Amino acid sequence: MGNYPMVCGKYGICSNGQCSCPRSSSGAINFRQINNRQPELGCSEAIQLSCNASSNHKFLNLEDVTYFNFKVDIRGTNLNSCQEACLKNCSCKAAIFQYGSNSSDGNCYMPSQIFSIMHNEKDKTHYNSSVSIKVQIASSVTSPSVETSPGSTIEGKNRFLGPVLGSTLGIFCVAVVIGLTYFTYWKKKKSVTVEEDYLDHVPGMPTRFSYEELVAATDNFSKKLGEGGFGTVFEGSLKDNTRTAVKCLDGMGHIKKSFLAEVESIGSIHHVNLVRLIGFSAEKSHRLLVMSI
């Protein structure tokens, strides 16, 4: 699957061509798949991070994994110092630590958002890597007790009302969360479907390929030609042996505003000294352009 940043969605782990959510060795559920039938859509936090409750921030540690991108924020450090720096920075979502033979002399990266995480193939990367994802731990609030005399009517009412109010509020909160989650998913799914169908009604639109076809054509995006202009370009070959350059666009969530504009503009250009757009792919979060070379 290469190092495409959204190949398994946000917080998704890519390993042996499969997508999964980060799991804690203690059995705690910190992340859930957005759609169990489509694991490539990524994962959502069980409890959203809050700067107002930073004292309840902990780390879910993942060994032998790496990130699709790495920018050094702290050099010559160790894992504990990297994690401490991330805990002190509210915008930090994870402490990504890489080192060679000395774990006390590594590099630390603290991204403000997490896309896909990948299994670290040490024989290819030649470094050790771990990802410590910041998670929110639920806080327990204990209400102060009120002393009353034995047999007090107030005490009896409090004992009765406490469980009733607690259960009612709990059921109401669960219903609200389920309703908002379903509405958000439905709205997102409808928006993506409408935008993708829109592409099929644009006059003069070039050939539309499936994402799987382009994975096969580029040998799993293995030969990189370059990057820039909102994406990375890979060499490929179609079934009819046409040599192509496949451009994977980054951050093109709004098809009409960004991706479609590029498809229409490039597709309308025909010049002897320029590459020609012969197709594209738009499936879920994947936005790709196919050009002849």
Results as ranks from 00 to 15, higher is better:
residue 210 S to N: 14
residue 127 Y to F: 10
residue 188 K to V: 08
residue 203 P to D: 07
residue 22 P to Y: 04
residue 254 H to V: 07
residue 121 E to R: 12
residue 15 S to K: 15
residue 147 E to C: 14
residue 191 S to W: 15
residue 18 Q to A: 08
residue 215 V to G: 00
residue 261 A to Y: 05
residue 38 Q to P: 06
residue 156 G to T: 12
residue 62 L to M: 13
residue 131 V to C: 03
residue 141 V to I: 11
residue 121 E to Q: 12
residue 192 V to N: 10
residue 37 R to I: 12
residue 9 G to L: 05
residue 55 S to Q: 12
residue 252 M to I: 05
residue 169 L to C: 09
residue 125 T to F: 13
residue 248 C to V: 03
residue 219 D to S: 12
residue 149 S to R: 15
residue 71 K to G: 09
residue 83 Q to E: 00
residue 209 F to W: 11
residue 4 Y to P: 01
residue 150 P to W: 09
residue 56 N to S: 05
residue 209 F to H: 08
residue 27 G to L: 01
residue 275 V to F: 06
residue 118 M to A: 11
residue 15 S to V: 11
residue 59 F to I: 04
residue 231 G to Y: 03
residue 129 S to A: 14
residue 155 E to V: 02
residue 174 V to A: 07
residue 5 P to Q: 14
residue 236 G to K: 02
residue 14 C to L: 14
residue 161 L to W: 13
residue 248 C to A: 04
residue 64 D to L: 08
residue 274 L to S: 11
residue 269 I to T: 03
residue 253 G to K: 13
residue 175 A to E: 04
residue 291 M to N: 07
residue 203 P to S: 04
residue 251 G to Y: 06
residue 245 A to C: 06
residue 203 P to A: 07
residue 95 A to T: 01
residue 106 G to L: 02
residue 276 R to P: 08
residue 176 V to P: 01
residue 237 S to F: 10
residue 121 E to K: 12
residue 50 S to H: 01
residue 59 F to V: 01
residue 127 Y to G: 13
residue 213 E to W: 14
residue 259 F to D: 00
residue 236 G to V: 00
residue 130 S to R: 03
residue 143 S to M: 14
residue 98 Q to M: 08
residue 122 K to R: 11
residue 235 E to Q: 06
residue 2 G to T: 03
residue 188 K to A: 13
residue 141 V to T: 07
residue 157 K to A: 15
residue 4 Y to N: 07
residue 137 I to W: 13
residue 48 Q to T: 09
residue 107 N to Q: 13
residue 203 P to H: 04
residue 63 E to K: 14
residue 154 I to A: 13
residue 66 T to K: 15
residue 73 D to T: 02
residue 254 H to M: 11
residue 272 V to K: 14
residue 283 E to T: 01
residue 150 P to T: 06
residue 52 N to D: 10
residue 121 E to A: 11
residue 98 Q to I: 09
residue 53 A to R: 13
residue 194 V to C: 07
residue 19 C to D: 06
residue 266 I to P: 01
residue 258 S to D: 13
residue 32 R to W: 00
residue 70 F to H: 06
residue 54 S to G: 09
residue 47 I to V: 08
residue 117 I to Y: 03
residue 90 C to M: 05
residue 216 A to H: 05
residue 175 A to N: 03
residue 5 P to L: 13
residue 127 Y to N: 13
residue 5 P to D: 12
residue 68 F to K: 00
residue 64 D to Q: 09
residue 165 L to G: 12
residue 198 Y to D: 02
residue 206 P to L: 07
residue 10 K to P: 12
